[in-house]
């Protein structure tokens, strides 16, 4: 019953604040969607809404199964097919439980200790680690235990929310390599969330860029990175420090404003910061009067920008 994970019009509100606003995407089975964006863009809220930790509106479907509706007891079982790995492995493992017990938590039925050993080997850890408490493990080891715990539920979809953000560089690579190997070997469908575009690019087939609770650009990873259509994506790309290039200081394509707040409607959310928008260029009234999200589907890569290339007629 492994099907695509499809999210339609997902909206998450915390009181009066809208964290996620009408987000839609579909991840085909066995592929990886990368979700990037700055802090506060709503990436993590999307993840928490999909696994049911945050109340949301909109449809979330896994194959033919609706994850967003139904009685609580049943959804709890259905939702187990989607597992979440958290950012900070120091907080995501119960300090009182042995590693083996933590992993076994997601299991149903018997033969648990054998299965725990199997899973530990799958994430390249010594099965004897099962006898230890989490505080004896390094950050990278703990994150691998957290991944093993998620896999114990035999998920069809794995959501990785900033899983390398709290790890040191030398250990980050261990976890990234592991996730890619598992995704390939187990045919996992994956939603990979990070603020680091280089990391997302390395892991993902498709890429979605979030700004202020919406997806502003989405397309195949290489295309979005090679030919970004939205000025925000371009700005993100230009801001990544690359070893040995010194381009952050020389490049002049900096965003127009240093304010962090999105612009009020109507019009484009990004227009105050946009380096090619009405803040710096005259004659861009359309950005102030009309929301570019409407014409998204008619453009190359689903870009929410009036300036984006239109899709070539087929």
């Amino acid at each position: 019953m492994t099907g695509a994970l499809a999210v339609q019009n997902l909206t998450v509100r915390y009181g009066a604040f809208t964290a996620v606003c009408g987000v839609s995407f579909e991840i085909p089975p066995g592929s990886v969607l990368g979700l990037v964006g700055e802090s506060g863009s709503g990436k993590s809220s999307v993840a928490r809404a999909i696994v049911g930790l945050t109340p949301s509106r909109g449809a979330i479907r896994l194959g033919d199964t609706d994850l967003s509706a139904g009685p609580v007891g049943r959804t709890r079982q259905v939702r187990r097919r989607v597992q979440l790995v958290f950012q900070d492995p120091r907080g995501s493992l119960d300090p009182r439980l042995h590693v083996g017990d933590s992993i076994a938590e997601g299991m149903r039925g018997g033969r648990r200790s054998a299965r725990v050993a199997e899973l530990l080997e799958l994430v390249s850890l010594d099965p004897r680690v099962a006898e230890l408490r989490p505080h004896l493990l390094s950050g990278g080891q703990r994150q691998r235990v957290a991944i093993a715990r998620a896999l114990a539920a035999e998920p069809a979809v794995l959501i990785a929310d900033e899983v390398t953000a709290s790890l040191d560089v030398s250990v980050q690579a261990v976890v990234l390599n592991l996730l890619r190997r598992l995704q390939r070997d187990l045919g996992l469908t994956m939603l990979f969330i990070s603020h680091n575009l280089a990391v997302v690019r390395y892991v993902s087939d498709e890429l979605a860029v979030m700004f202020h609770g919406r997806i502003v650009e989405q397309g195949p990873a290489e295309e979005v990175i090679g030919a970004p259509e939205h000025p925000y994506t371009r700005s993100l790309l230009a801001a990544i420090p690359q070893v040995g290039e010194r381009r952050l200081l020389s490049d002049d394509a900096v965003e127009a404003s240093v304010t962090g707040d999105p612009a009020p409607p109507p019009g484009c959310d990004y227009r105050l910061r946009c380096p090619v928008g009405p803040a710096v260029r005259p004659g861009m009234e359309i950005c102030e009067t009309s929301d570019p999200a409407g014409g998204k589907d008619d453009r190359l890569h689903l870009a929410a920008c009036h300036l984006a290339e239109p899709r070539a007629p087929t």
Binding site: R48, V82, L84, F86, D88, S92, L93
Partner: peptide, 10 residues
């Protein structure tokens, strides 16, 4: 997070 993780695990 480990409480959330347990919830996600059903």
């Amino acid at each position: 997070d480990y409480i959330d993780a347990a919830r996600v695990l059903g």
